[in-house]
Amino acid sequence: MVTITKEQQAFTLINVFTVAADRQDELTNFLIQNTDEFISKCPGFISASFHKGIDGTSVVVYAQYDSLEAFQNMIKTEGGQKMVEEGSKIAESAQRSLCYVYETKDLQPTL
């Protein structure tokens, strides 16, 4: 289960991909498969969530690692480099944002 709280102090990667509409599913499935087979086994990986834009031309990945260093170590590996290279052949562009959770808000239950 994905947990997003500032208390968790997790490092967050938000990656927004632009993709041709006829390749949105291909990119999403590639990212999920790569996470299942490689990224999830890397030290420091916590979770990943995959989002498909309703316009069909975007894919957003929200991933958490226990530190910036864990993410950097993963991306430097042969598997990480291969993932970037192969993903770049499917996506038209990618905008990576490296973050820490600042605040979260939940709907307060009514009694």
Rank of each mutant, 00 (worst) to 15 (best):
1 M>V: 08
2 V>D: 01
2 V>F: 06
3 T>L: 14
3 T>G: 11
4 I>F: 08
5 T>C: 08
6 K>D: 11
7 E>S: 11
7 E>L: 09
8 Q>V: 01
8 Q>I: 10
9 Q>K: 15
9 Q>P: 00
10 A>E: 12
12 T>Q: 11
17 F>E: 01
18 T>D: 06
20 A>K: 14
20 A>W: 01
21 A>H: 06
22 D>M: 02
22 D>W: 05
22 D>F: 07
23 R>A: 12
24 Q>K: 04
26 E>V: 04
27 L>M: 07
27 L>I: 04
28 T>C: 05
29 N>P: 00
30 F>A: 07
31 L>I: 10
31 L>Q: 08
32 I>M: 08
33 Q>A: 15
34 N>W: 10
35 T>A: 14
37 E>P: 00
38 F>C: 06
39 I>V: 15
39 I>S: 11
41 K>M: 12
41 K>R: 14
41 K>Y: 10
42 C>D: 09
43 P>N: 11
44 G>P: 04
46 I>K: 12
47 S>W: 06
47 S>H: 07
48 A>F: 02
48 A>D: 00
48 A>P: 00
48 A>H: 00
49 S>T: 14
49 S>E: 15
49 S>F: 09
50 F>K: 03
50 F>M: 03
50 F>E: 04
52 K>H: 01
53 G>N: 05
53 G>V: 08
53 G>R: 04
54 I>G: 08
54 I>A: 15
54 I>R: 13
55 D>R: 11
56 G>L: 08
57 T>C: 13
57 T>G: 12
60 V>N: 00
61 V>N: 11
63 A>Q: 02
65 Y>S: 02
66 D>C: 13
67 S>K: 09
68 L>C: 07
72 Q>A: 13
72 Q>H: 14
72 Q>I: 09
72 Q>N: 14
72 Q>L: 11
73 N>E: 13
74 M>E: 02
75 I>L: 05
76 K>S: 15
77 T>L: 10
78 E>K: 05
78 E>R: 02
78 E>S: 06
80 G>Q: 04
81 Q>R: 15
81 Q>G: 10
82 K>Q: 12
82 K>A: 12
83 M>C: 09
84 V>F: 09
84 V>N: 05
84 V>P: 00
85 E>Y: 07
85 E>W: 03
86 E>I: 10
86 E>L: 15
87 G>E: 01
87 G>M: 12
88 S>G: 15
89 K>Y: 02
89 K>Q: 12
91 A>V: 08
92 E>V: 12
94 A>M: 09
96 R>V: 07
96 R>E: 03
97 S>K: 09
97 S>M: 14
99 C>Y: 07
99 C>S: 05
100 Y>N: 10
101 V>P: 01
101 V>K: 00
102 Y>E: 12
102 Y>T: 04
102 Y>W: 11
104 T>N: 02
105 K>M: 13
106 D>Q: 14
106 D>T: 11
107 L>R: 06
107 L>D: 04
108 Q>H: 10
108 Q>N: 06
109 P>M: 11
111 L>Y: 10
111 L>A: 13
111 L>M: 10
